[in-house]
């Protein structure tokens, strides 16, 4: 067969589904970052006169049961969860990458101990683990960060370990080592290009999982405390008033849905 000149081929553009994901995330980010700049307001300011009132100029999404602007509460909630989630994913990713590479490269008892630890953590339900950490760590945001990191690193660890083991056993790595290249070169040239796309996919999924966990615990009143604007907490607070103020309840639900769908589309459509 004729030789395919792969090097001349341009980088494939983002697939359609991925582009939809990026657009959804960008919309949510624009709402949370730019929204309060365009329409100024305070997410904590109460005005019982306006409880459950419809949208007006100062509150484009109406008011909740305590007369707070749903728009501003939503904007702040959409900053809080993603920031905690991203911080947790970055910590978990770094830890998983480091430990996974170590495990695959060293093997032996280091590998066995780390795998056993990861399996033990997998055996515990993730939300239970986060609740336990929340009970131990002072400060809810810090507790979420620590708990989520502890749950999420296992995924990164397992991915890195599996891919790195395979790469390290390949003739390409053997050739590099015989030529005298060190561990840093092997990681940079052989291992990282192999696992980077997987890590990005796992990071997007991990962020979605983390946002969902924060919202789920908020919804059952064991996560963030009122009056902090948080997605799950907003939903459960507004649930009794769904008949009177449907828009106020729908807003956090739709925003959460758009954010999670965007992250999942961004992560899931990688074709290799």
């Amino acid at each position: 067969m004729s030789v395919l000149d792969l090097s001349a081929a341009p980088q494939p553009p983002l697939s359609a589904t991925r582009r939809v994901g990026v657009v959804l995330i960008a919309l949510v980010a624009a709402l949370s970052l730019l929204g309060p700049l365009i329409v100024q307001g305070d997410p904590y300011a109460q005005s019982l006169m306006k409880a459950l009132a419809g949208p007006d100029a100062a509150a484009p999404l109406g008011y909740d049961h305590l007369g707070r602007s749903v728009f501003h509460r939503l904007a702040y909630a959409l900053r809080l969860s993603p920031v905690i989630a991203l911080a947790a994913v970055m910590t978990a990713g770094a830890a998983g990458l480091a430990l996974g590479t170590l495990s695959a490269a060293k093997g032996g008892w280091i590998d066995r101990c780390l795998v056993m630890l990861a399996d033990a953590l997998l055996a515990l339900p993730g939300l239970l683990l986060i609740l336990m950490v929340l009970a131990m760590v002072p400060g809810t945001a810090l507790g979420f960060w620590a708990g989520l990191s502890l749950v999420l690193w296992v995924e990164f660890f397992r991915l890195t370990r599996a891919a790195t083991r395979e790469t390290l056993a390949s003739p390409a790595v053997q050739a590099s080592r015989l030529l005298g290249f060190g561990a840093a070169y092997v990681f940079r040239v052989h291992i990282w290009p192999e696992i980077a796309p997987m890590m990005l996919t796992a990071a997007a999924f991990g962020t979605a999982t983390a946002i969902m966990a924060i919202a789920a615990l908020g919804f059952v009143h064991v996560g963030m405390r009122a009056p902090t604007p948080e997605l799950g907490l907003m939903m459960v607070e507004l649930l009794p008033y769904w008949r009177e103020a449907p828009l106020a309840l729908l807003a956090p639900v739709l925003a959460t849905f758009a954010l999670l769908l965007g992250l999942t589309l961004l992560a899931g459509s990688r074709k290799t």
Partner: peptide, 13 residues
Amino acid sequence: QKLYQDPVAAFPP
């Protein structure tokens, strides 16, 4: 040094 049976597998892809 070593030369491999499948040279494609012996280079970083």
